[in-house]
Design a protein around this nucleic acid. Structure first.
Length: 358
DNA sequence: TATACGTGGTT
DNA sequence: TAACCAAGTAT
């Protein structure tokens, strides 16, 4: 036993209990119907930082729309973003398509099955590489996500701060020994499923736990205090003013966000960050007159709060009219009708603006 | 290593 | 209700 953490740990008994429990208790999920590596891959990307219940309908629609790696590789960026609209972390789908293109071009459409090759693909980090390798190819690679860190920190009474990037490696080291070489797929999924159904963040269901006899935290009565996780900073509010510019044909002006950064390449209504509530309308009016030659601004028609992980947009929405079509269209600026607007992918806050004001 | 990167659900 | 959480990755 090289690993100190596994001293006196009944490794084989633990594996069997976990794997058997998984086969008896796993949820029926759409991505569990096939071991096709492309399908597993798509599901793993969608599930990053995203709840299972949220992912299910997106996954089903996405697989109908892009059933194979070739279909996704050939798709327009507008279409893949639209398919991802509302899921968040939009670079995931652009990285996924970029990586799928590479798989089609460099690997003949077959998802590579080595750690080195698969890890070199955009958007495939240590967790996703391990998940695909174990689930699609049966390889004994660890797949350390938040569930796994929580479950293992309790089972082995590990008091590392799981918010720190370095913690993941510690869990991987243990798992290289602990993982079932017989059924790595069920073992990895079992660890995650246990975290999702039994070994939950708060009030874990220890009385139902298949590996309770192996749990050091339970033995010590400290399961509720694990894992250790340092707190994140609060997101800072930003005051924003958005503008619905209407022309005489009833169309509205939308623009494409920059290629990098927050909500990259999604569409939005023109907007600016403003300095203060009191001066907001003047700030917006000065900017809008210069940009779009608008006539008078309306009173605020709507307010929307958009909470991100690291910041909060507090958006006040105004309207204004222009004569004719003074603003030319371009790649990043379009006049669209109420019907046409559905084809474009917007962040949720701007979807709310559409629903309320368009 | 710390931070950017979305969104919706739960307590 | 504010805080926390959810199958992470890129930089």
């Amino acid at each position: 036993m090289e690993n100190e953490l596994l001293q006196d740990f009944a490794t084989e008994s633990f594996r069997e209990s976990l794997v058997n429990w998984f086969y008896e208790n796993q949820r029926i999920l759409p991505w569990r119907e096939s071991k096709d590596a492309y399908r597993v891959w798509v599901s793993e990307i969608m599930l990053q930082q995203t709840r299972v219940e949220t992912v299910i309908p997106y996954y089903e629609a996405f697989m109908r729309r892009f059933p194979t790696a070739e279909d996704l590789a050939a798709a327009d960026e507008e279409d893949i973003l639209k398919a991802w609209e509302g899921l968040g972390y939009y670079s995931r789908v652009r990285n996924l398509q970029s990586a799928v293109k590479e798989v089609v071009e460099q690997y003949g459409g077959k998802v590579p099955d080595t750690k080195e090759e698969i890890s070199s693909l955009k958007g495939v980090g240590p967790y996703t590489a391990g998940a695909i390798l174990s689930i699609a190819y049966g390889k004994p690679e660890p797949a350390v996500d938040g569930n796994v860190m929580r479950v293992l920190s309790r089972i082995l009474l590990i008091e590392e701060d799981i918010a720190k990037p370095a913690a993941r490696k510690r869990f991987e080291q243990v798992l290289y020994e602990l993982i079932s070489k017989e059924d790595p797929s069920a073992f990895n999924q079992g660890l995650m499923e246990l975290g999702a159904l039994i070994c939950t963040p708060r009030s874990p269901g220890c009385l139902l736990c298949p590996v309770r006899p192996h749990c050091r935290a339970y033995e010590a009565g400290v399961q509720e205090g694990l894992p250790i996780k340092s707190k994140k900073k609060k997101p800072l509010p930003k005051l924003m003013a958005a503008l619905i510019v209407r022309n005489e044909e009833g169309e509205v002006l939308i623009e494409k966000r920059p290629a990098e950064g927050l909500l990259a390449r999604l569409w939005q209504f023109p907007n600016i960050e403003t300095a203060g509530v009191a001066t907001q309308k003047e700030e917006l009016a000065a900017w809008a007159e210069e940009q779009f030659q608008v006539e008078a601004l309306s009173k605020p028609v709507q307010t929307v709060e958009h909470v991100f992980s690291h910041l909060i947009w507090q958006i006040t929405v105004y309207e204004a009219r222009v004569k004719g079509r003074p603003i030319g269209e371009s790649e990043s600026r379009r006049w669209v009708s109420k019907q046409e607007i559905e084809q474009f992918a917007f962040p949720v806050s701007h979807q709310k603006i559409i629903q309320h004001s368009i």
